[in-house]
Amino acid sequence: MKCTPAVALALLAPAANALLRFPCAQLLIDRRDPLVNPGQSPSPHLHQILGGNAFNTTMDPSVADISKAATCTSCQFSEDTSNYWTAVLYFKAKNGTYKRVPQIPNSGFDGVNGGMTVYYMQDGLYNFQQTSKVTAFQPGFRMYIGDVNARTREQAERFRQLTYTCLDNINTRDPQTLDFPTVPCKAGIMTALRFPTCWDGKNLDSPDHMAHMAYPESGTFESGGPCPATHPVRMSQLFYEVIWDTTQFNNKADWPEDGSQPFVWSFGDGTGYANHGDYIFGWQGDALQRALDAPCYINCPTLKSQDVAAMNKCTVEREVKEDIDSWSTTLPGGHVANYVKR
């Protein structure tokens, strides 16, 4: 997918566009993962979590509607108490020590505390009218995308559109790669995660948190490709954009002596192929379906919005008491950079 300068600007212009795109501030950074490691604290690696403050270590599946337990959300739309999370990015210096890379808000979302940008799309990123009808996720719905053990391009290609962009400026969107950029990026690194869009119509979750969802059987979501018969219900495409402020690490004299790129995920992946994301639906009532049926952009008359101060104020206390910000010889949980095929 190519993004011309005109398209990049259109993404940021609120005029008549109908793309549901909004910021979520950081709820917490912690070693908890109630989807893959429910009840385990600390979980194996560090995550950045966003959304509703009902987030907890277990996220008991029997409590289907988490929106009823949340009292605030770190997202722009106060009716969205879903939880969104990804791994955390680290820099590996020449001396082998690690430092956490901070997140910064996307263009147009100044003041938001890190976090990321969330999209729900009916017709793909570059169709601004968004006229197709799609089904909203339901209370209890959960999904995951990616493979934490992937270390090769072939393993990463199983998942469509988990990419990196080396930002020349905050609005850069291409080229996109499956692995980490190998040169210093002027404005940071953006990770993009697009989730599958075809639902089996029955299961709100599955053992691997993926099997109940599928990609179109031909073409792509953007091209209107049909859903397979096994997963006939066309859902909106959930899409995350995370901007990592790698600019403070752009001095190549600090990079590993062997010339390798210096960035690594919090669980040790130094290839970038193990990029992944998690989602638990938590919109209140029919708010998401209303928004998808009457598309809007940033300021949605069908949804209740809150200001940046309210978004930043919604936080959850960290459960795992460890230093995640100082230089360290290992990543949280004792991980080290790993480039080995698994």
Results as ranks from 00 to 15, higher is better:
132 S>K: 08
141 F>Y: 13
294 A>D: 09
91 F>S: 06
205 D>T: 13
59 M>H: 00
42 P>H: 11
145 I>G: 00
267 F>K: 01
111 G>N: 12
31 R>E: 06
50 L>Q: 10
44 P>Q: 09
58 T>N: 14
22 F>Y: 15
137 F>G: 03
157 E>R: 12
94 K>E: 05
9 L>F: 13
156 A>P: 02
76 Q>E: 07
223 S>M: 10
18 A>L: 15
245 D>F: 08
122 Q>D: 07
17 N>P: 02
231 H>Q: 06
281 F>G: 00
228 P>K: 07
250 N>E: 09
207 P>E: 07
178 L>Y: 14
246 T>I: 04
225 G>Q: 06
296 C>E: 01
281 F>K: 00
42 P>T: 08
337 A>D: 06
301 P>R: 06
187 A>D: 15
316 V>H: 03
177 T>D: 08
46 L>W: 10
268 G>S: 05
28 L>I: 13
218 S>I: 07
196 P>F: 05
213 M>I: 08
39 G>C: 08
173 R>K: 15
87 A>R: 02
68 K>C: 03
222 E>P: 01
244 W>K: 02
47 H>K: 08
189 I>P: 01
278 D>G: 04
288 L>E: 02
330 T>G: 09
210 M>W: 03
292 L>K: 02
165 T>F: 09
299 N>L: 12
179 D>E: 14
247 T>D: 06
339 Y>F: 15
272 G>I: 05
214 A>P: 00
186 K>S: 15
274 A>W: 02
54 A>M: 05
68 K>N: 11
143 M>V: 07
227 C>T: 02
215 Y>N: 04
32 R>H: 03
132 S>N: 12
159 F>S: 04
304 K>M: 09
177 T>M: 12
209 H>Y: 14
282 G>L: 04
61 P>G: 02
290 R>S: 10
160 R>V: 07
265 W>D: 01
197 T>I: 13
13 A>G: 11
338 N>M: 11
179 D>C: 10
276 H>A: 06
71 T>S: 13
101 V>F: 06
278 D>S: 10
232 P>D: 14
124 G>K: 01
98 Y>Q: 04
196 P>K: 01
180 F>I: 09
170 I>K: 13
76 Q>W: 00
317 E>L: 15
185 C>R: 07
295 P>D: 05
304 K>I: 12
139 P>K: 08
178 L>F: 12
3 C>A: 14
96 G>V: 03
322 E>V: 11
155 Q>R: 07
333 G>T: 01
7 V>H: 14
259 G>V: 03
62 S>Y: 05
316 V>N: 05
156 A>W: 03
241 E>W: 09
241 E>L: 13
121 M>P: 00
214 A>L: 11
71 T>M: 08
301 P>D: 08
92 K>P: 00
8 A>E: 13
82 S>I: 03
288 L>T: 01
222 E>A: 14
46 L>R: 01
282 G>E: 01
28 L>N: 13
